[in-house]
Amino acid sequence: MGNLDIALKNAMDIDGAIGAALVDYTSGMTLGVAGGTGEIDLTVAAAGNTDVVRAKLRTIEMLRLDDEIEDILITLGSQYHLIRPLSNRTGKGLFLYLMVSKSRANLAMARHQLRAIEESLEL
C-alpha cells in the first residue's frame, strides 16, 4: 500500500488541496484518505460521491455512448471537487477524489497533476 500512500500524499501536495481519497465505488468505502478538516469527513464525501459516479456511469450506459469517464468536476462556491476514475486494470471500480480550495488552486494544474497521479498509481 506504499504506492497508495504516496499517491495520496502527492494529491495533498497539489496547490490548494483540502482532502484526497481513493474510493471503491462498488461499495462506497475508502481505501485511503488524506487531509480533510474537522468539518469535512472524507468517508461521508466518498459514500456520497459514489452515487455521483454511479449515476454518471448509468447515464453513459443509457445513452449508449460506449465511453468512459475521464474525470468529473464539481464547482462549489469556494471549492473544486475532482473525481477521477482509475483507468488501469488494477484500479477497476475505484476513483480518486480531490477537494481543492477555489481561491488557492490552479484548476488546470490540479487536473493535470491528478491525471499524473492516477497514471502512476498501481495497486
Binding site: T26, T43, A47
Partner: peptide, 10 residues
Amino acid sequence: DSINVARLHL
C-alpha cells in the same frame, strides 16, 4: 449487491 454499503453504514 449494488448497494452503497458505506452509505448504509453511515
